[in-house]
Design a protein around this nucleic acid. Structure first.
Lengths: 118, 118
DNA sequence: TAAATATATGAATACATGCTCAATTGTTGT
DNA sequence: ACAACAATTGAGCATGTATTCATATATTTA
């Protein structure tokens, strides 16, 4: 519990803590941004987005590429849809997914840069 | 299971699937990069990194800022340490943590940009 | 050396999450 | 209208994971 932290812990640098606290993002922002990263943090979802980097694709093709059941693919696409990371368009029985905007591109690329440097 | 996907599903665009499959990252790369994003995908860990964006800090101060127990803070710092997202330096009883390199900065910023645009 | 302090760690628990399976919706073609 | 098909959805299950609690380690100070 946070309530009694001030009793248990004594090494706090009060000025620093207050200064950084004032710069901290509010909870809503933190929730938003960590949801975004959490979405990219699952290998399946990352692969889906990485595929869609090249072109729009139907659910069927995505599941074939990932070697994943079509149901599981669809479930994950819903997560990405809810976070507005992908958009879709219907064409007959099929649904084509694509990346929502260019930001996603850049975030994926920063991640790729990071592991290349490691 | 992926084994019988080709039997169950019939709408696959074979050329596209093969083309994208050849461009797909290998599993090791995907694991690496999604581990990175997963680390940022937890609100607590994101806050820790966001704090460290401003300056190095001791465990005690971090836990005070986040209003989180010292133990929980330490556990999460270990995760970040193992992923080489943070480094640390000892000074007496205290341990000061800081961001490992500038890449982390940029990734955090891309994420922030994204939610600002939403 | 003993007490106090800062951090780390292991076990346990409560909760989140990704997949499968079964069933459903919506569209096309006969 | 009916069968086939692409995709979605809900329930259930098995696995992960974030926190807490208790304890251990390491450093400083008395």
């Amino acid at each position: 519990m946070g309530k009694n932290l001030t009793c248990e812990i004594t090494c706090i640098h009060t000025e620093i803590v207050n200064k950084i606290k004032s710069k901290m993002l509010d909870d809503e922002e933190v929730t938003k941004i960590s949801s975004l990263f959490k979405a990219l943090g699952d290998p399946t979802r990352f692969k889906i987005l990485y595929c869609l980097r090249f072109r729009e694709m139907c659910v069927c093709d995505i599941s074939a590429i990932l070697n994943l059941s079509q149901s599981a693919t669809s479930h994950q696409l819903r997560v990405l849809r809810n976070l507005r990371l992908v958009k879709y368009r219907k064409e007959g029985k099929m649904v084509f997914y694509s990346l929502e905007d260019d930001h996603i591109f850049r975030i994926l690329d920063e991640g790729l840069n990071h592991i290349k440097h490691d």
